[in-house]
Write a protein that binds this DNA or RNA. Structure first.
Length: 420
RNA sequence: GGAGAGAUGGGUGAGUGGCUUAAACCACAGGUUUGCUAAACCUGCGAAGGAAGUAAUUCCUUCCGAGGGUUCGAAUCCCUCUCUCUCCGCCA
């Protein structure tokens, strides 16, 4: 949600930011409605004040057993006007909100300007592409050849974009997520949380998924949605709260299933388990003081990177441009892991600083010097578990079709050094 | 699923139609005293918004789980919904 005061004071800057994000200049319309709303409000409040005074006089007169008919008549007269103005105020307020809540966050000054993913900026990379003496297989070939990854059975159960992982791959999933959680809780200072996968409308509104992106979500019954990421419940843990400054920063991690309809991705990545309706992810969320959020984004990124470093898998990091960034973000880094089978870099983590955008929607503040200030929220994958498995399979595959288990995972994998 | 009780500021909690302008305590912030810490004492302290003013500030409106209603006037009365707790039943 946007700060209306900022738009009043910097309409041009606001319009420029929206244009960079593929929206249109709309500050003029916003300020017109805002102006009408405030005029109505002022007029209404004066009448309410008058009514309150009259009511008090009536109370006094009645307690003294005096006649109050004149005052009662006056109240009756302004009542209709009050109701009309109330309705008008509500209309204007709704009009304003319906525009504001659908506008994306203002990009950070360091976010590159661009239209699509082609304009994303290379930030840095780690490691090198592994060299194979044979043609590396793609992850689903390794999985299917060993009868550990079953898309047909999954399709029988649930349709397309699902997978059944069998035996050792199912165990590998568990090993990866345990490794990540241990790393983030024991070394990186995140508190592990086990959260609901079903949430209500207002929770998704808080993180910015609603009202604009309902088509990306799965609805469950009349009152719940399946979470598309643990960011949603984790960030909302503090909604509608005024936090004590001593509580900050709050750092949470959670391993959850995530559910996405992939509505706009028809025909994209249909082979394999890269893009599923259901996948697991270890998420990182930070709630911090505003002046610290830039640092926290770098910190969070390094926590996510640490996982790939320990797994010894090559990756690069891109800074997303204004046109490719998510709705609530002001700055986002994508970690893209190298997949030799696919001969491509693929997103395995996305770390975003949302500034106070979500905090305004969720109404999360903290008290500093007796003032209530909106917090800054950040979220990042640390990492997507399914895609990490893909990266391991493709990077650690051997010529005989087996896969070496990365050293750091072996203690979570029955101390085996090979998948099979 | 059945029966009952409840939801008030950051927290505990008083308040059953107009002296509530939401008490009191705790927490928090500032100060005094003290060699430091602690303690004691003093002061301040709910939230959102509007208007006037260069500003300090002043005035006003709304908010007591949410939404409706009754009334000149509602935290308080009525209706609907949500959630929490207790007991019973069922259940991983």
């Amino acid at each position: 949600m946007h700060n209306i005061n900022f738009i009043r004071e910097n309409p041009q800057e606001f319009d420029n930011a929206m244009i960079q994000r593929g929206e249109i200049a709309i500050s003029k319309k916003i300020l017109e409605i805002d102006e009408e709303k405030r005029k109505t409000q002022t007029f209404l409040q004066n009448l309410l004040s008058e009514k309150n005074t009259l009511s008090k006089t009536i109370g006094k007169l009645k307690s003294e057993n005096k006649n109050a008919d004149n005052y009662l008549k006056k109240v009756e007269e302004i009542k209709n006007e009050i109701n009309t103005l109330k309705e008008l105020e509500t209309i204007k307020e709704d009009e304003l909100q319906s525009i504001l809540k659908r506008l994306p966050n203002i990009p950070h000054s360091s976010t590159p300007v661009g239209k699509s993913e082609n304009d994303n900026l290379f930030y840095k990379e780690w490691g090198t592409k592994p060299v194979f003496k044979f043609k590396p297989k793609r992850h689903f070939e390794i999985g299917e050849d060993n009868n550990l990854m079953d898309f047909e059975t999954a399709s029988k159960l649930s349709g397309s974009r699902f997978v059944v992982l069998k035996g050792q791959l199912s165990r590998l999933e568990r090993a990866i997520s345990n490794f990540m959680l241990d790393k983030h809780t024991l070394e990186n200072g995140y508190k592990e949380m086990n959260v609901p996968f079903l949430v209500k409308d207002d929770i998704l509104y808080g993180t910015g998924n609603l009202p604009k992106f309902s088509e990306d979500l799965f609805a469950a019954g009349d009152n719940h949605w399946l979470i598309p990421t643990a960011e949603v419940p984790l960030t909302n843990l503090s909604n509608n709260q005024i936090l004590n400054i001593k509580q900050l920063p709050l750092r949470y991690t959670s391993y959850t299933h995530c559910f996405r309809s992939e509505a706009g991705a028809a025909g994209k990545d249909t082979r394999g388990m890269l893009r599923q309706h259901q996948f697991t992810k270890v998420e990182l969320v930070s709630i911090v003081e505003p002046n610290y959020s830039d640092n926290e984004l770098e910190r969070m990124l390094s926590c996510a990177e640490a996982i790939l470093k320990e797994l010894n898998i090559h990756y690069r990091i891109m800074t997303l441009c204004t046109g490719d960034m998510g709705f609530a973000a002001q700055k986002t880094y994508d970690i893209e892991v190298w997949l030799p089978g696919e001969n491509n870099y693929r997103e395995i983590s996305s770390c975003s600083n949302c500034g106070d955008f979500q905090a305004r929607r969720m109404n999360t503040r903290y008290k500093k010097e007796n003032k209530n200030i909106f917090v800054h929220t950040l979220n990042g994958s640390g990492l997507a578990v399914g895609r990490t498995m893909i990266a391991i399979l493709e990077n650690y595959q051997t010529e005989d079709g087996n896969v070496i288990i990365p050293e750091v995972l072996r203690k979570y994998f029955n101390n085996q050094d090979k998948l099979i």
